[in-house]
Write a protein that binds this DNA or RNA. Sequence first.
RNA 1: GGCCCGUUCGUCUAACGGCUAGGACGUUAGGUUCUCAUCCUAGAAACAGGGGUUCGAUUCCCCUACGGGCUACCA
Length: 490
Amino acid sequence: MSNKKVRTRFAPSPTGFLHIGSLRTALFAHLLAKEFDGEMILRLEDTDQKRYVEGSEEKLYNTLDRLGFKFDEGPRIGGDYGPYIQSQRKKIYNKYIKRLLDEQKVYHCFCSPERLQKMREKQQAEKLSPRYDRCCRNLSAEEVVKKINSGEKFVVRQKMPLEGEVIVNDELRGEIKFQASELEDHVLIKSDGMPTYQFALIVDDHLMEISHVIRGEEWIPSFPKNILLYKDFGWEPPKFIHIPLTLNKGGGKLSKRQGDVAVEDYLKKGYLVEALINFCALLGWHPKGDNEILTLDDLEKMFKYKNMNTSPAIFDIEKLDYFNGYYIRKMDLDKLVEIINPYLANNIKKTSDKNKQTDEFIRNVVSTEQERLKKLSEIGELTEFFFVDKLNYPKDMLIWKKQKDEDCKKNLEIIKNILEKISENEWTKKSIENIIIKYLKDNDLKVGDYLWPTRVALTGKKQSPGPFEVAFVLGKEESLEKIQDAVDLF
RNA sequence: GGCCCGUUCGUCUAACGGCUAGGACGUUAGGUUCUCAUCCUAGAAACAGGGGUUCGAUUCCCCUACGGGCUACCA
């Protein structure tokens, strides 16, 4: 019925890093905006200076950029509803709290933190729910003025109805009922003059014409207070969508203690944006068909917020790893080489060989591991052998199954002889393979007896890419040297 | 403790109140293969329990159990 433009917002706090759960919230807000061809804005919720972490603002913007979220309005790009940083909106909050004060929808509270502390302890001792006792709710106007003039510190609290029911509506969960008597007269303006989240949220979302609020279900308990505040202002509330929480493996809230919750850390480890987004989208939402490999583009086309579900989802890193490996395999090699370069720096440092520092060599190295990588950061360890002159492995590793020492040595020499005859021009993976396989077939020899020792000689590892491609990447000269090194072990 | 939200394979999830409860990850067994990985094929694996409503409940309602969240001058 309303032809109001759909506008969603992502409103993180600058507390040091972007939580992986926030990434998911941002994703859904983004997709919801796309679903209705609407707009998404970025707003910084920095009203708690105690939690503010220096530099996290920049970090946040960088991460959001890397993830590829495009905001229509926000702190850096501006917009018609700014400023988009809450600490810069103090005047606005003051104006609106004054209105509520005038209408006696809220009140000054002069209770000290110490008194509140004692009050709560007493309530708990009596097995009551700790809740503000509304001590200052009925102070006379004169008393209030007197206290303020004498310099007493105060907060502003919202007046909750004393009785009755508050019914709120969540777009996914339907009606949720609360008893008004359960609600606390919570703080709207702190003693430092800053608004709390509960107040800034309402003023900002209204003024910024947000149509859909997507937030975590941890906010459901304060939902009725939010709605009541809209009522106090006489404003129509936006639609609310409380998305289920993401839990850790043990079923608890995903928190910084048990490892990785910072998107930055995932990025650092070499998780791709595509994988992160694909994975997060499937936590609480599912497409119609069976295909789960979805890019942001796909998601934008098929996302329907009504398909989101309401039960909490456990963050299963194994599936994330699968997506990451999948996207790495599908990635264009040049692109992969470009983004994986930083992870190769240590290996490159290990060699003085200029040939091993060329783009071509790096590209070849990366290509040998593309199908094996689950995370970009694994490339270092996986390809270290390409960069060292002398491999270090026990002689026994060269032995294939029950092979005798002398056979293994002989076979290595045979392979070395074959390779020596291949010209530099012919030195490609394909022709090395063709020539060796042809020799083995023609002479009715078992491939394992030859290829295993060769591969170990070239890599020093039980598990590695195949011998032909390694030989190709290493080049003729070095391949021969390494095989000779292996022969010399006997 | 109180209030609120939730409950389908180990995990993410699908299924107008009506079929052998489907898919993905993981897992198991094969195949490909010098190894690992990739790829292919096949398999095991779930409706928390109890009451209703109904011709019929995974699906709707109630209770119980379990899990989670909130209970700050943090968001």
